[in-house]
Amino acid sequence: MSLQITEELKAKAELYYGDQVCRERFSLLLAEIGLPDGLLTIQNIEECGYVKETGFVWLKLQKKREDRLDNILVCYDTQVTAFVEPNKIKNLTGVKAKEFLIWVTLSEIHVKGPPEGSVITFKSLVGLSLSLPLAWFQGGKEAQQGKEEKWWRTIKFCT
Rank of each mutant, 00 (worst) to 15 (best):
I5A: 03
T54E: 02
E14G: 09
E32M: 11
K64V: 11
K123H: 15
W103M: 09
G38W: 03
N71G: 06
T6F: 06
E8Q: 11
Y16W: 06
L69P: 00
R153M: 12
N91P: 04
A97Q: 04
V21R: 12
I155F: 11
Q138H: 07
K52D: 13
S2K: 10
K123G: 12
K147Q: 10
L73C: 11
S2W: 04
W151C: 05
L61I: 03
A13L: 03
I155Q: 08
N87V: 05
K60N: 14
Y50I: 10
K96W: 06
W103L: 08
R65G: 04
G18P: 03
L132K: 08
I155K: 07
S129M: 15
W152Q: 15
I33L: 10
L3G: 03
E32N: 14
I72K: 02
V51R: 06
E53Q: 13
K90F: 12
I102T: 14
T54K: 05
L132P: 08
R25S: 07
E149H: 13
K123A: 13
L125E: 13
Y16H: 11
E148W: 11
S107P: 00
G140N: 07
E14W: 07
Y16N: 04
D70T: 07
I42W: 00
E46P: 00
W58C: 02
V84H: 02
G94P: 02
C48W: 12
I102M: 14
K10P: 00
D70R: 07
C48Y: 12
S131M: 09
Q138P: 06
W103R: 15
Q145K: 14
T54M: 08
K12G: 02
P115I: 14
F56I: 03
L35F: 00
L92W: 01
L73V: 10
T41F: 05
I33Y: 06
L28F: 11
L69G: 03
W152M: 13
K96S: 08
T93P: 01
T78S: 06
L28I: 09
S129N: 15
Q62G: 13
F83Y: 10
W103F: 10
L30M: 14
E8G: 02
W151M: 08
T154F: 13
G113I: 07
T54F: 02
H110T: 07
C75S: 15
V21S: 13
